[in-house]
Simulated scan of single mutants.
Amino acid sequence: MRTLSLPRGTRWATSDDVLSLLRRRWSAGTDLSELALGEAWEPLVIGLRPPSAAQYANDFDAVQAWAGRWRARLPAGLRVEWQAVGGRRSGVVQLPVRVVVESRGDLWRLLQVAQQVHVFENILDDVGSRLPDARDWVSRHPQRVLAEAAHWPSFIAVVNWIRDAMPADAWVRQVDVPGVDTKFVEVHRETLAALLEVCLPPERLHTGNSFAQRYGFAVKPAYARVRRPDGTALLPGVSEMTVRVSELDALDLPGHVFVVENEVTYHAFPPAPNALLFLGAGYGVSRLIAVNWLADRPVTYWGDLDTHGFVMLDRLRARFPQVRSMLMDRATLLEHEAHWGVEDSPVNVDLEHLSVDEAALYVDLVEDRYAVGLRLEQERIRFGRVLAATALG
């Protein structure tokens, strides 16, 4: 037998207290996991923390009423054990001291979950025959399995297709299983990922943060957008390009490289001669790290004057140490106080590639020296300042 304890502080437990304890155990998946893993059933014993003899003597009516409720409302599936309490002063009375759940069948009836158990056992059998490597995972996550019970035939089919029939470099869109589309995979990717982790051989598991990268699907290529701000052609007849970063690396374009974050700023950038202008678009600036020839160019980065802007500067400079910043200094910040805004989600991380002045300003932004969550967006800086800065560039 196994003894289960009611929450601390429970006294004179009711049937509702007992059912609540058993439902918590059910919700944790313990009962179905033990069933699926073939563990032998042991009756569950729950002490009711009944009144003492002294409490019976001092509060006779309340104790009798409590015991009477146990006699009148015994839930099906529970066996109650009674014990004599009392003495010469108050007389002897039989009080319930513990309840016992004798079998799994009793527990299912008590919790009214027989249908859910039946559904789980059918899924377990299906997994055991069609996806045996996942049986142990299913056994250990029964409530998660039940929450998606209707989808398990599709889960099994998708995992088998990925393992046995997926072409090299397939896109997630190409998963060819009846009733399954890209949205299905996206919505259920956590469960599918858990199954693939235990069903794919180690050599089929790849590094990467996305579902597609982890399981060998093709991923959307990284693109970069670039133009010459003086209007001259990048290539014959081409003034602006959005190109795959992998192909951009082979172009080896000449010029002083500027990187800006805002699209309007990208279009309105002064016509600096012999320059290349990239649209960074936030953390998309990290894509430029793969363009190897940038190591041989002067590079100027202009981001928003906020904590995220300095993080992006730090990332770019970690790859290309020659990167200098533009209009990301204290003088620019203080000059534009009327245009200060608020950064929604400031960051506070160690940045190792900032200059002394940049690092000092970054710390001031993190510590809210001038204002809470201070942000100066690049499009709010006076255009005359932009003209002067690019002339120096």
Rank of each mutant, 00 (worst) to 15 (best):
L35D: 08
R2N: 13
A233C: 12
V172Q: 10
P132I: 06
N209Q: 15
Q322I: 08
A268S: 12
L392V: 13
N209P: 04
V127G: 00
D181Y: 02
A62W: 00
I162R: 05
K183F: 04
L251Q: 05
E263P: 08
A76Y: 01
E203R: 09
D176I: 03
R104G: 06
R69Q: 12
V177K: 05
A389W: 09
E247T: 11
F258V: 15
V372I: 13
A222G: 04
Y283I: 07
G341I: 02
G38C: 08
D59G: 08
Q213V: 00
D61I: 06
E240W: 01
R89M: 09
L351T: 13
T265H: 02
W26D: 14
A65L: 10
V372T: 13
R24M: 10
D296P: 02
R144F: 01
P271S: 08
V245E: 07
E42Q: 15
L392K: 09
D314N: 15
Q378F: 02
E121A: 14
V198F: 07
S27I: 06
H267T: 03
V101M: 00
F155N: 05
A65C: 03
P50Y: 04
D31E: 14
L387R: 11
T30P: 03
F184V: 00
P321R: 09
A218S: 09
P96T: 04
K183Q: 01
R109W: 07
S239N: 11
A84L: 11
V145E: 02
V175P: 07
A360N: 07
V92L: 12
Q83E: 15
R214C: 11
F60R: 15
S15K: 13
S246K: 14
W26V: 04
L6E: 03
Q55N: 05
P236L: 11
F184K: 00
G47S: 14
D350A: 15
E81T: 15
D176L: 10
R244F: 10
A62F: 01
P153S: 05
R135W: 00
A212C: 10
N122R: 15
A28H: 14
L205F: 09
W340D: 04
G77L: 06
P43Q: 02
S246A: 15
V243F: 03
H339C: 04
G280Q: 08
R88N: 13
T30W: 12
A54R: 15
V349K: 14
A272W: 08
R227I: 13
E343T: 01
E337Y: 06
L131S: 08
P153C: 04
S20R: 14
W66A: 00
R104I: 05
T14Q: 06
A371F: 01
E148P: 01
R375D: 00
V264Q: 11
D306M: 00
